[in-house]
């Protein structure tokens, strides 16, 4: 039995996904956060995960880079394949995995270090990089996130002096210095004011062809603006489930599931 209605668009079905999630479930102790989640994540696209609070969206995202390991008593079952490697396999190297799969959090979390050091720290850790290469890379990623002109004269200042939106873009830059294949963004705009939120949203769209992105969002309008694929989570019998997955066009124009339809038209959740 499929737990979601498969998208019928023939073009997308042909492409094999970069990440393939099969029958994933996660529980904290005896509490099941979500179960029976299977979905594909396609390279170079933005996959939006939407749904009401507490339906397991963030828990789902944390499985994709094994951040779930950090939570005591958290158990994950099922399969996630990233270009053939089994992410959930106990022997999978989480340090290496997390360099391939970057993550952005709801609240910007720069380290209490200088702007420069925030970016240099992961770079140095990543490999012995020459000093001029270091400066070059830092400038490139800061330009990528549109922060260069704002901070180029204050790179040695504490990152905590930046505004919330700037901090969030710095965190995205910090993830980009490692040149990850995939970016996981957990409600990256929800802690920001509307203007900063718009800037970050534009940034996500600009990064689209280069990075595969999975974005959790509460904001349906945002999902419809930026997403290629949309997954709809819902709580059924106090357990999170993926009730529908498809292209943004299909989900927003003709949802198959009545809950999705109700949620999108604002009737529920």
């Amino acid at each position: 039995m499929l737990s979601y209605h498969t998208n019928t668009d023939p073009d997308s079905v042909e492409v094999s996904p970069l990440i393939d999630v099969q029958q994933l479930r996660l529980r904290y102790g005896s509490h099941m956060a979500f179960e029976q989640v299977s979905l594909p994540i396609y390279a170079g696209q933005i996959t939006a995960i939407v749904g009401p609070s507490g339906c397991g969206k963030s828990s789902f995202l944390s499985c994709l880079n094994r951040m779930s390991d950090l939570v005591p008593d958290c158990h994950v079952d099922g399969q996630i394949h990233l270009a053939g490697t089994d992410i959930l396999h106990p022997n999978t190297d989480t340090l290496l995995l997390r360099r391939r799969v970057g993550m952005i959090f709801q609240r910007p979390n720069p380290f209490p270090l200088s702007i420069w050091e925030n970016l240099a720290l992961p770079l140095r850790e990543h490999g012995n990089i020459k000093r001029n290469r270091l400066a070059e890379t830092i400038e490139t990623v800061l330009r990528d996130v549109g922060l260069w002109s704002e901070v180029k004269d204050r790179l040695r200042q504490s990152a905590l002096t930046l505004s919330g939106g700037q901090q969030q873009r710095l965190c995205i830059a910090r993830a980009l210095v490692l040149q990850p294949e995939i970016l996981l963004l957990d409600e990256p705009c929800s802690a920001l004011d509307p203007i900063a939120s718009g800037i970050v949203e534009d940034l996500i769209v600009r990064l689209r062809p280069r990075y595969t992105q999975v974005v959790i969002t509460h904001n349906l309008a945002q999902a419809s603006r930026i997403a290629d694929q949309v997954g709809m989570f819902w709580v059924q019998n106090s357990v999170g489930r993926l009730i529908e997955f498809g292209t943004a066009q299909q989900i927003f124009a003709s949802p198959n599931h009545e809950l999705t339809a109700a949620y999108i038209s604002g009737g529920k959740g």
């Binding site: 190297d93 340090l95 850790e125 990543h126 490999g127």
Partner: peptide, 12 residues
């Protein structure tokens, strides 16, 4: 690969 070497170093 310097990246893999750094990874091994980090592990050590």
């Amino acid at each position: 690969m310097s990246s893999l070497a750094s990874l091994r170093q980090a592990k050590r």
